[in-house]
Write a protein that binds this DNA or RNA. Structure first.
Length: 194
DNA sequence: GTACTGATTTTCT
DNA sequence: GAAAATCAGTACC
């Protein structure tokens, strides 16, 4: 049920597509929270929008490490965003998790987010880390064991039919903005934007 | 409903 | 010193 390292050690765009429908789950002292991944973005080698584009720095070092680990960084001084490291070790590639459909621990998510509407709990990269209690303390953590995990699609009962995957441009970037590296489940009402 | 703005701080140049 | 893989609130149709 936990996705193996071999899942992540593939072409990043393929991993981004295959992650849709899988579950991101975090456990801590307050409880367990998790949801279905419904939106993500690929950041790849030779990609001016990727943090790894200009080589390794203290912040992005985890992106250059082994696949199957979490890269968590702070954005705009306020929010944390979570990525999964993908591809070959040293390539500096990752997939940003942008939105979840809340499934596990919805009450705890509502408390952490101070919101009740399910659609607003995890519909954005900063929102979902807040709902799941993911912070930079998890930067570099393995997703194969430990408190933050990714489970396969079959781990929990999901929709009867897989909705079509929509591929479009990434959100919030200025460099390489035209590259279609954002993926989401068509028809999901839990994505950050259409 | 859409559009614009302020918050807030880390990070790298 | 500027920019940043964002969000919530306000203003205005």
């Amino acid at each position: 049920m936990i996705l193996p390292r071999s899942f992540y050690e593939r072409e990043t765009v393929t991993v981004a597509r295959d992650l849709l429908g899988c579950y991101l789950v975090h456990q801590d002292d307050d409880g367990t929270t998790g949801g279905r991944i419904v939106e993500d973005e690929a950041y790849i080698a030779e990609d001016p929008a990727a943090h790894s584009f200009r080589g390794m720095t203290p912040r992005n070092a985890v992106m250059f490490g082994p696949p199957g680990h979490a890269y968590v960084y702070r954005i705009y001084g306020l929010y944390d965003c979570v990525n999964v490291v993908t591809g070959r070790e040293g390539s500096g590639e990752a997939v940003l998790i942008r939105a979840l459909e809340p499934v596990i621990g919805i009450g705890l998510m509502q408390k952490r987010r101070r919101a009740t509407d399910r659609r607003s709990l995890c519909s954005g990269p900063g929102k979902l880390t807040q709902a799941l209690g993911i912070t930079r303390a998890l930067n570099g953590a393995s997703l194969l064991d430990g408190p933050l995990q990714v489970w396969s699609r079959e781990s929990l009962p999901g929709p009867a039919e897989d909705p079509a995957i929509v591929q479009t441009t990434r959100i919030g970037i200025t460099k390489a903005a035209e590259r279609p590296l954002r993926f989401y489940l068509g028809g999901s009402s839990y994505i950050s934007r259409p």
